[in-house]
Simulated assay, not measured.
Amino acid sequence: MNKSLRNPLVYILFIFPALLLFFMFFIYPIFSSIYYSFTSWNGVSANPKFIGFSNYLKALEDERFWESAKNNGWFIVFSCFIQVPLIIFFSLLIANVKKLKGLYKTAVFLPSIMSTAVIGILWGFIYEPNIGLLNKLLGLIGIEPLYWLSDEKYAMFSILLTNAWQWTGFYIIMVLAAILSIPRDLDEAAEIDGATRLQRALSITLPLIKPIISVVIMLSIAGAMKAADIVIVMTKGGPAGSTDVLATYMIKYAITNFKYGYGNTIAVLIFIFTLILTALYQLFIARRSERIEY
């Protein structure tokens, strides 16, 4: 047995299936998209026409493309500056709960295991102008019904709120695990020294969970760049394309309009933008969150 394990062919045999799947479903699609992004192709013809960088130049001059990219930016801003602080706040609250902590963790995590289609339909009923819960509550204080998903002023915010509701619990569990792994001795020593709960949270807990907060922010950025399903379910990019993100804009071109060449160009640009954003975050921010051991 030991002699077999020293044979390199044994290890190659075990990792080959994983490498094959990785190549089939990750490496090959990436290079395939890059190739087709330089072509004019309808997705059906056998011989795509090579057109060089024409698709990329078209994308850079396409106002709808940049409008969609701006909406992805709103996802990032909302996630980093509103969702992440709320995640930290609720994680600290749950960490200090004495009873039914498991119930609270289950409750906040539940939305993240639900289907996006279910989430979209559920919140669609909440946003419904005539019988929706949100407008009913606003009506109690004298505010006229608002068209949350059909008015350009509110549609994007409505989607951002729904998306945050779905994924906040998932990140709370991550941050909560980091908080609960901090030795109680540190907190107790600070409490004996007279530090208040707020002071302990700001001076002990937050500095010690910086690495996991950094991971949450990076995942939020990556998730914001590939957002599509919640938009498709709730608005299909409407009204008048005001809630389109890069992924939904790509789907419209590639599938609805049979312009697979340009659709692959948008897919490659999404990949490049995501790579640049995550690299910049890692370079200028995440690297400052050093690994903490205690």
Rank of each mutant, 00 (worst) to 15 (best):
L60V: 11
K98D: 01
Q83M: 13
F75R: 08
A69L: 05
S79A: 15
A69K: 00
K58S: 14
I51G: 03
A69T: 02
I87L: 07
K70A: 07
F89W: 14
K98F: 02
Y56L: 05
L92A: 03
E63H: 05
F53H: 00
F109R: 05
V108S: 06
K105Y: 05
V84D: 02
A69Y: 00
R64D: 11
D62H: 07
C80P: 00
N96V: 00
K70N: 02
Y104A: 13
S68N: 01
S91A: 14
K101Q: 14
R64Y: 11
L92S: 05
I88N: 08
V77M: 11
S54C: 00
F65V: 02
L100T: 15
N71D: 08
N55S: 06
I51M: 04
K105W: 02
W66Y: 06
K101T: 13
I76S: 11
F75C: 13
L100E: 15
F65R: 01
K49S: 13
K99Q: 09
L57N: 12
F89K: 12
I94T: 04
A95T: 03
G73A: 03
Y56P: 05
Q83L: 15
N71K: 02
E67V: 11
K99L: 11
A107P: 04
L103W: 15
N55M: 03
F65E: 03
S79G: 12
